[in-house]
Simulated assay, not measured.
Amino acid sequence: MMMKKILMCFCTLLLASVVLMESQAQVFDREYTITRDYVYFRGQPLRDANPRYFQNLGHGYGKDNRHVFLFGQILEYVDPSTFRLVTQRRPYGPDPAQDLVDDDIDEDTYNVYYGGNFTQGGYVQMNNTVLYHGRKLEGASAQSFRYLGKGYAKDDWNVYFEGKKIKGASTMNFSLVGGFYATDNWAVYYRGRKVEGASTMNFTYHGGGYAEDSWNTYFQGQKL
């Protein structure tokens, strides 16, 4: 009888430990935040992290093109190009509550995390001017200004991504393809940057940051 009670107590403690570890893992999955300029862990900037290539791997892990991080700390002598997180848990889908940088977050979620809670990605169109995050968007035409989604906008003369002009982009037929990819008549753009070598011919977005044209496949704007 005593052995049975001990076994039951052990099983209860084991279950509680598993639940605690699971909840902690879920918390860590949400604690990396990536903006255009910085990567943050629990609100603290990671100055050695590259936001352009950073990936939140879950369970407190993240990596960019140079380093692998665990709970915001660099793991020395670990190669990010070969590092993979192996887990029996099912991978997360495009859940913005767990991965704020997922390319497939919807427009409402983008507005919350990147648009400063403005309804059009941070842009506010007035009668005679356009604001981005409360600052005047120099040179923008209020009369022809149009928000396209995921931080992209255009007027009759310029195309913008998150309040900055996209150099060389044509307003003619400029449109959002999917995720953070957009195209005009001649080029493909990812987060406002031209995707070098990408063709607009048959350019298709497949989700999760992946896209392809008639010749190549791309992940988050980089050719694979």
Results as ranks from 00 to 15, higher is better:
Tyr61Gly: 06
Pro45Ile: 04
Val18Cys: 03
Asn65Leu: 10
Tyr38Trp: 12
Arg66Val: 14
Gly60Trp: 00
Phe69Ile: 11
Met21Tyr: 11
Gln55Phe: 02
Tyr40Gln: 01
His59Glu: 14
Gln24Arg: 12
Ser81Gly: 10
Phe71Ala: 15
Glu76Tyr: 09
Ser81Glu: 09
Phe28Asn: 12
Gln44Leu: 10
Ser17Met: 08
Asp48Tyr: 04
Arg66Asn: 15
Asn56Ser: 13
Ser17Val: 12
Asn50Phe: 01
Thr33Trp: 00
Val19Arg: 00
Val27Asn: 04
Leu75Val: 11
Ser23Asn: 06
Thr35Phe: 05
Ala16Gln: 10
Gln73Leu: 11
Ser23Glu: 07
Asp79Trp: 02
Arg36Asp: 13
Asp64Ala: 08
Gln26Val: 15
Asn65Phe: 09
His67Lys: 08
Ile34Arg: 00
Arg66Ser: 15
Arg30Ile: 07
Lys63Ser: 06
Val27Phe: 00
Glu31Phe: 02
Val39Tyr: 04
Asn56Met: 06
Asp37Ile: 01
Asn56Arg: 03
Tyr38Val: 11
Phe54Arg: 02
Ser81Pro: 07
Ile34Asn: 00
Thr82Lys: 05
Gly60Met: 02
His59Thr: 13
Gln73Lys: 15
Arg36Val: 10
Asp79Met: 03
Val68Gln: 00
Leu46Asn: 05
Ala16Phe: 09
Gln26Ile: 15
Ser17Tyr: 04
Glu76Val: 12
Lys63Cys: 06
Arg66Leu: 14
Val19His: 01
Val18Ser: 02
Thr35Gln: 06
Arg52Asn: 06
Val68Glu: 05
Asp64Leu: 08
Gly72Arg: 02
Tyr61Ala: 03
His67Leu: 00
Ala49Tyr: 01
Phe41Ile: 11
Arg47Phe: 08
Arg47Tyr: 11
Arg66Glu: 12
Tyr77Phe: 12
Arg47Ile: 14
Thr82Leu: 00
Asp79Gln: 06
Asp64Arg: 04
Met21Trp: 01
Pro51Asn: 08
Tyr38Leu: 12
Ile34Leu: 01
Asn50Glu: 10
Gln55Val: 13
Tyr32Arg: 02
Ile34Glu: 00
Tyr77Gln: 15
Arg30Cys: 13
Ala16Asp: 07
Phe41His: 09
Leu20Lys: 14
Tyr61Lys: 03
Asp48Glu: 14
Gln24Met: 09
Phe69Cys: 09
Phe69Pro: 01
Tyr53Asp: 08
Leu15Val: 13
Val18Asp: 00
Pro45Ser: 06
Asp48Leu: 13
Tyr32Cys: 05
Gly58Trp: 01
Tyr53Gln: 08
Pro51Glu: 05
Asp79Val: 08
Gly58Leu: 02
Arg30Gly: 12
Gln73Asn: 15
Gly58His: 06
Arg36Thr: 12
Thr82Phe: 01
Asn50Cys: 12
Tyr32Asp: 01
His67Gly: 07
Gln44Pro: 00
Ala16Arg: 03
Asp37Leu: 11
Leu46Trp: 00
Gln26Glu: 14
Arg47Asn: 09
Tyr53Trp: 10
Thr35Ser: 13
Leu20Phe: 13
Arg36Ser: 14
Glu76Gly: 06
Glu31Cys: 08
Gly62Asn: 08
Ala49Gln: 01
Ala25Arg: 09
Asp48His: 06
Tyr40Leu: 12
Thr82Pro: 00
Pro80Phe: 03
His67Phe: 12
Leu46Val: 04
Gly43Thr: 07
Arg66Tyr: 13
Arg52His: 11
Thr35Ala: 10
Gln44Phe: 06
Phe41Pro: 07
Phe71Glu: 14
Phe71Val: 15
Gly43Lys: 06
Glu31Trp: 04
